[in-house]
Design a protein around this nucleic acid. Structure first.
Lengths: 202, 202
DNA sequence: ATCATAACTCCACAACTGGGGAATTCCACA
DNA sequence: TGTGGAATTCCCCAGTTGTGGAGTTATGAT
C-alpha cells in the first residue's frame, strides 16, 4: 500500500548507518544457503530489508559483494594458521580439530558453505577456496606440499560429507569423535618424510 | 535467414531417431560443466542441435531429464561394488583405484561432476549422491559403517580437490601415484576393528 | 545559508528462465 | 487410402535476473 519513505532516512550519520553491514549479513547467509548464482541480489536486498539498488550503491557488483563478504567475514586463515604452531607430535589432532571446528562454528560455517557451494560452479570462487585450502601451510613446508594437500583433501571431504551430503555415518558422531578418528591420518600426512608412495611402512 | 524445416524430418523410423540420445549427451555434459541450475534447458537443446520444446516432449521436465541422465549413465555402483571383492589385504588399493579411476574415466566423470555440482545446491541431487556414496558397502559390513564413511569421505575429498578445485599439489601427480599415496589409509579405515578413536596404534 | 555528497527509493530494461500451446510433417499400420 | 501418433518446429507467457538511470532526502563541512 503505502510507499516506502524516499531519500536518506533521518538520524543516521555518514559512516555508521548499519545498512551496509545488514547487507553483508544477509549476503553471507544467502550465499551460504544457495550458492553464488542462486542467491539473487534482490533476495539479499529483501532479506536485509533494503532496496536492491542499495547493493549496487555500496558494492557496485554482485561479484565484489561476494568478494567483500568472504574477505570481511573471514578469520579463517588466521585460525588455521594458528593450529600449525606448537608441538609437532600433536599437529594432526590440532589441525583436524581447528579445521573441523570451523565447520561447526555457526559464525564461520556460512562462509565456508558459501565458498564451497559457489566454488563448484564459479571458477572465481574456486580460486578463493583453493587459496584458502592451500593457505600458509605449503609455504611453511614446501617439501611436503603433497602431504599437506592430502590432509586438506581428507578434511575437506569429511566436512563435505558431514555438512552438505549429510552422510549418516558421519553426521552421527560428534565433533570430538570425528577429530580423534581422523587425527592420526592427518598427522601422518603432515609429517611423513617422503613425497610419494614409499610411506607404506606404517 | 531461412527458417528451420518444420515437422517430422524424413528418413527416420519411429523409434530410432538419435535425437533423444543427443539430448541426453548434451545434458550430461552441461550438467557436469555447470551444475543443475546453471545448465539451462535452452542451452542443452542448442548444444544438442535441437529445439528446446523437444526436451519437454521427450522428458516433460527438467528434473526428470536430470534424473534420466544420471540413471541411464550409471554403471558406477557396479564398478565400485566389484572392487570390494577379493584379497582383503589389498582392499584399500583396489577401492582407491576403482573410485579414483571413475573420476579419470571420461565416460563416468561427467556423471559424477554433474552429481556433485548439483548436490551442493539441490537437495534432491544430494540424495542421489549420498546413495551412491553409501552404496553397497555398509550393508556388507554394518559394524564398520564409520570406517567406510571415513574412507569414502577421504576419496571424495581427493576427487573434489583434484577435479573441481584443482589443487596444484593434487593435480600434479598422476592417478597411480595418488592411489599409492592414499591406499594405506583407505585400507586402514576399511579394515580397522574399532569404531572410534582407539585405533591410534599405527 | 550553501552545497557537495552519502544514503536511499522507484522505475525501466534487456536478457534469460522453465514451461505450455499449436502447427507441421512424416511414418506405420489398418 | 485413410488415419493416428510420433517427431519436430515456432511462438508465447509470466517470471526472474543483474544492472543502470534518475530522483529524493538528510548530513556535514564550509
Amino acid at each position: 500500500m503505502s510507499q516506502q519513505q524516499r531519500g536518506r532516512p533521518t538520524g543516521r550519520r555518514t559512516g555508521d548507518s548499519g545498512t551496509r553491514d545488514a547487507i553483508l549479513d544477509a549476503a553471507l547467509t544467502l550465499f551460504a544457503e544457495r550458492g553464488y548464482d542462486a542467491a539473487s541480489v534482490r533476495a539479499i536486498a529483501e532479506s536485509a530489508g533494503v532496496d536492491p539498488a542499495l547493493i549496487r550503491h555500496f558494492f557496485g557488483d554482485k561479484n565484489t559483494l561476494f568478494a567483500t563478504v568472504v574477505a570481511d567475514r573471514t578469520s579463517i586463515p588466521a585460525r588455521l594458521g594458528a593450529a600449525l604452531d606448537g608441538d609437532p607430535s600433536t599437529l594432526g589432532a590440532r589441525v583436524a580439530d581447528a579445521y573441523l571446528r570451523l565447520w561447526e562454528d555457526p559464525q564461520t560455517r556460512p562462509t565456508l558453505l558459501a565458498l564451497v557451494r559457489s566454488a563448484t560452479t564459479s571458477p572465481h570462487a574456486a580460486d578463493m577456496l583453493r587459496d584458502l585450502l592451500a593457505g600458509r601451510a605449503p609455504a611453511l613446508a614446501p617439501d611436503k606440499a603433497q602431504g599437506t594437500a592430502l590432509a586438506a583433501s581428507h578434511l575437506f571431504g569429511i566436512a563435505f560429507t558431514r555438512h552438505i551430503i549429510k552422510l549418516p555415518a558421519i553426521t552421527a558422531c560428534d565433533h570430538d569423535t570425528l577429530v580423534a578418528a581422523v587425527a592420526p591420518t592427518i598427522q601422518h600426512y603432515l609429517t611423513a618424510d617422503q613425497q610419494t608412495a614409499s610411506t607404506n611402512a606404517r
